[in-house]
Amino acid sequence: MQPKPDWPLYEIFVRARGGLDHKHVGSVHAADASMAMEHARDVYTRRQEGVSVWVVRSTDIVASDPDEADALFEPARDKIYRHPTFYDIPKEVETL
């Protein structure tokens, strides 16, 4: 017999301190968003690891495909002129 399906999966993002980005920390199963929030609090912030939590239905996340990583990210590789270190500025020139 197939086991009964799970509660939906939510991805959890925690802001560790004011001024920092929310960071993905893991996931929880919950019947709805408010339960996901409670579970996220219990599972991921038992030691004051956060000051703010986002919960997002996992099925609502659209992720890039690792097989397409080259097509997506390679074109940036040869554009070294986008980095400040590309430019040789004479050292007499200050504050640049």
Binding site: P3, P5, D6, L9, G26, H29, V43, R46
Partner: peptide, 18 residues
């Protein structure tokens, strides 16, 4: 909590919690 983190990690490999 450890059980919960680990079940989450296992589920990323394509097996359900149930």
């Amino acid at each position: 909590g450890h059980g919960a983190y680990l079940y989450s990690a296992a589920e990323t490999l394509g097996i359900s919690r149930a």
